[in-house]
Structures are given as C-alpha cells and as structure tokens.
C-alpha cells in the first residue's frame, strides 16, 4: 500500500502540472485551431485525473464528450470567428491589468478557502457521512441496480437528470434559433469557405467499418449502465459521434440524408418527452412524479424491479435526446447555420 500512496501524489502532481501547461498554452496561442487542439489535450488529462480518483462515470462522460464532441464543436465554430490581440491600445492594457489584479486576488481567496475543505477520501467528511452511506447500503436492495451512480442519477435524483436533459434540449434549440438565418448577408460571410477536394477513399472505408462498431458500442454503454460505468448520456454522445464521423468522412449532405433534419428534431424532443412522460404516468397512477414503483402493476414485476426498469427507460430517453442534440449542434455550428457544408 505504500506504493499506492506514493503513486498518488506523483501522479497528481504530474497531471496537474501538465493541465496547467495546457491551459496556459491554449490561452497564449493565437491560432484558434491550435487552441482547440490544446484544449483536447486538457480534456485527456482531466479524464486521467478523474480515473485516478475512481470517479469512473465522470471519466467516461469526459472521454465521450472530450474525445469526440467538444473539440469538433470548437473547430466548427472557429471557422466563422477570428481572434486577434491588440497590442497598441494603452486604455485596454490598463483594463487588462486591473482584470489580472482582480483574478489574482480571487485566486488567493479561493486557495485560502481550500484549507477548510476536508481531505480527499476522508471518511469523516460531511459528503461521506450524511447521505452517501444510505445510497451505498440501500441502493441495490431498493432499485436492483448494482451501479450506485446510475441508481442515484436516474432514481433518487431523477428530477435533476430530467432537467439536465431539458437543458441539453434547450441548448440545441438556442443554437438553432441563433444560427438558422439564411439571409443574403450571412451567406456572403461564408463565401470564403472553400469546397472540399479529393475522394478520401481511405477515410470512407474506415468510416464504413468503424461506424457500425461505434453504434453497437453506444447501445451497449446505454443498456449496460446498470452494471458498469456508462448510461444514457455517454451512450447518446457516442451514438451522436458516429453521425459526426460520417459527416466528417463524407460530407454534411451525406450524413443529413442518413439522419434527416426532422428526424433529428423529433428525437431531440422525443427523448425529453419520454422521460417526462414516464414521470407523468407514475403520477397518474397515484405515485410521486418519477416514482417508478408505479410501473410494477403495468410491467407485472415487483416494485424493486420496476424501479430498475424505470431507470432503464429514462436512460433511453436521455440517450435519444443527447444523441440528436449532438448531431443537431454539429450540423448547425459546423455549417454556420445554412446546413450546406460542414467541417
């Protein structure tokens, strides 16, 4: 065990050091492409950090979102924006120095406050004494779900998860409302976008062989969330990433022929509707909103198994919404809103 504790701080120090280097580099680089790439490295490192803290579900989410979605969305947006550094404006320099001073003061205050935080993995800390023991001891007997994180996420805290799904849905709506304008002026702003050349034979062959595997893996992650890390959100992100890969290897028109615009929108709303509908069905049968025990009579199983099935159903709803929202975000952001051509 001495080995393990010695690993702990070496590992932590090295990864935190690399994360700071990545963050500073991403800010200091002028090209947006370079910045987005360095942000990708940051995402890998923070996933390692969470893996090391054994927060496996969080690490999985970071793996799916960081490796597949976030950098692609950054790059899609970076096509249409630019950044430059003004060096010869004394007034702005003064404001920047004031900002720096305020940031340093805030950092000192927050670092000072960290001394009051409990030690990492301290069994006497408030987080591990109040509610966690009940979840860890009772979750399996109450919901028949071995993965406590899934049980907490989709059963005990299912209100939170429902509104997370609503937030994801709202994000797609907002991006659509802001970007979907096909006025003449907007199209002129996009005229610098050159067409893609070449046939990409290798890429298309690779896409044909890897996309089915990716989609089956996404379904596995979604349905195996009761027993291993994963669940609706991660599975949905991986499923959506398969369509983004299709758009990257062929083009946006091709992927939108496979997964049409109105199907994307139906899936966006349908997932949230499925989640809320299950809650409303429980309410209609005289239980609490999202009290899955109400489904026992309909499904013909015990209360405990009904909660397990209810968790699966809402995870499917989350997965559908997240998958469609990821595709919709990519379509809108990478094409600048006109859905003509993506990244």
């Amino acid at each position: 065990m001495t080995w393990d504790t010695s690993l702990l701080w070496q590992f932590d120090i090295l990864i935190l050091l690399m994360m700071v280097i990545c963050a500073v580099t991403a800010l200091a680089l002028e090209g947006l492409l370079s910045s987005a790439i360095v942000t990708g490295a940051y995402s890998f490192l923070i996933c390692l950090m969470w893996t090391h803290m054994r927060a496996v579900d969080v690490a999985f989410t970071e793996a799916a979102v960081g490796a597949a979605i976030s950098t692609v969305l950054f790059l899609g947006t970076a096509q249409y924006v630019n950044r430059w550094i003004k060096k010869d404006r004394p007034r702005e320099q003064g404001i920047k120095q004031i900002t720096l001073v305020i940031a340093v003061i805030c950092a000192v205050m927050m670092l000072n406050a960290t001394r009051d935080l409990p030690e990492w993995a301290d069994p006497a800390s408030p987080a591990s004494t109040h509610l966690s023991p009940r979840y860890i001891e009772q979750a399996y007997f109450e919901t028949a779900t071995p993965n406590v994180v899934t049980a907490v996420l989709a059963d005990y805290r299912s209100y939170d998860t429902m509104f997370e799904a609503v937030v994801v849905f709202a994000a797609a709506l907002v991006v659509m409302v802001v970007l979907r304008r096909t006025s003449h002026k907007h199209r002129m702003a996009l005229h610098l976008r050159p067409k893609r050349a070449g046939r990409d034979t290798v890429l298309r062959g690779a896409a044909q062989s890897i996309i089915p595997v990716m989609q089956i893996f996404a379904l596995y992650v979604l349905f195996h969330g009761h027993y291993s890390p994963g669940g609706g959100f991660q599975g949905g992100v991986i499923f959506g990433a398969s369509f983004i890969l299709l758009a990257l290897c062929y083009n946006l028109k091709f992927s939108m022929n496979r997964f049409r615009e109105h199907a994307v929108l139906w899936c966006c709303a349908g997932g949230v509707l499925l989640y809320a509908g299950i809650g409303a069905a429980c309410l209609a049968m005289g239980w609490n909103f999202l009290g899955y025990g109400a489904l026992a009579g309909v499904l013909g199983v015990s209360d405990v198994m009904a909660r397990s099935h209810g968790i699966l159903a809402v995870e499917i709803g989350v997965g559908i919404t997240v998958m469609a929202v990821m595709v919709s975000l990519y379509n809108d952001l990478a094409s600048g809103g006109d859905l003509e051509e993506g990244l």
Partner: peptide, 19 residues
C-alpha cells in the same frame, strides 16, 4: 469501457482538425 470509448472516438478530433 472508457478505454474502448477513447479508442473509438480519439481520431474524430484529429480528423476534424485535419479537415
């Protein structure tokens, strides 16, 4: 599972950057 996700998804970012 996390490593499988990385192995499947890692090159999407590189591909987008190359595009």
């Amino acid at each position: 599972d996390i490593t499988l996700a990385y192995a499947l998804l890692n090159f999407i970012t590189t591909l987008a950057a190359a595009r």
